[in-house]
Design a protein around this nucleic acid. Structure first.
Lengths: 142, 142
DNA sequence: CTTGACCTTAGAGTATACTCTAGGGTTTAT
DNA sequence: ATAAACCCTAGAGTATACTCTAAGGTCAAG
């Protein structure tokens, strides 16, 4: 099938497919006749594999590694696949923890602020951002 | 003080300070003598304000808005500051939820895989990535 | 007076994952 | 036969937040 059909069936764009090809994730045959890309049913499956990887939080680089395993299963091990999966899990969990700390900080900021139409002269959010860490720095001197 | 001293005192690099200047976040005076940037104690406070914004999860664009409030408090309201804060909180919370769903998916993938030195021929991670959503698509046809 | 440390600018490079454009060729349907 | 719809390539643009480079000017110490 041509790129437009794969795009439609796979739920992505022709641009994205060409991008994945440039990244060596999904390299189709080319028609000898007109140099149009010629995708197979397997290529569609690969496109869906890539989408699932993305939905699972894998980067394109991770995805490339997973594709290599998929495309040469007996040259790879479960350990490799699980290692990639657990490493990504750890990455995401660290990111979550970082974001949760930010949310906690934002909650503190928001809770103390009236949020009204008053001038920001005495706004606690601005005041906190101006001074909170100064205090920390003072502490750090002791 | 010159850029190097502010960088050291503020815990960032001279490159970053010039970048913030280009973004209009922190624009110091320039010495008439040699065109060197000349930062004041207030500029240092502003640099720290920016760092705290960053640590709280604000983008540089948010930070620019918060700086405008800080630098002209009586021209702005608590409502503005709180709105920025709550919007960012919502952004981050949405991101956290997305990442948590990915972690849950990765946990499912990892749990079912032996992770051993066996060939990936029957690796459940690869198999799941190959087929999971196909099943979903089948469901979607009904 | 020279050497090293510091400063300047403009602009390019990094990372991730696309997204789009320009300029041109091909296919399909009427 | 012609117009719409599709395909091609190469490369630039988007977003965020830096990070670094090149080529040169300035400053402080010995």
């Amino acid at each position: 099938m041509k790129i437009g059909e794969l795009a439609k069936r796979g739920g992505l764009t022709a641009h994205t497919l060409r991008f994945y090809e440039k990244k060596q994730l999904l390299v189709p045959q080319k028609s000898a006749l007109n140099q149009y890309r010629d995708y197979t049913a397997d290529d569609l499956a690969t496109a869906q594999f890539i989408k699932r990887c993305k939905a699972s939080g894998f980067s394109l680089e991770d995805t490339a590694a997973l594709l290599q395993i998929k495309d040469a299963k007996d040259a790879h091990t479960c350990a490799e696949a699980k290692s990639i999966t657990l490493a990504k899990r750890a990455d995401l969990q660290a990111k979550i923890t970082e974001l949760q700390q930010m949310v906690a900080t934002l909650d503190e900021l928001a809770e103390r602020c009236c949020g009204g139409a008053e001038s920001a002269e005495f706004c606690s959010i601005i005041a906190d951002l101006e001074s909170r860490f100064e205090e920390c720095n003072h502490d750090a001197h002791h």
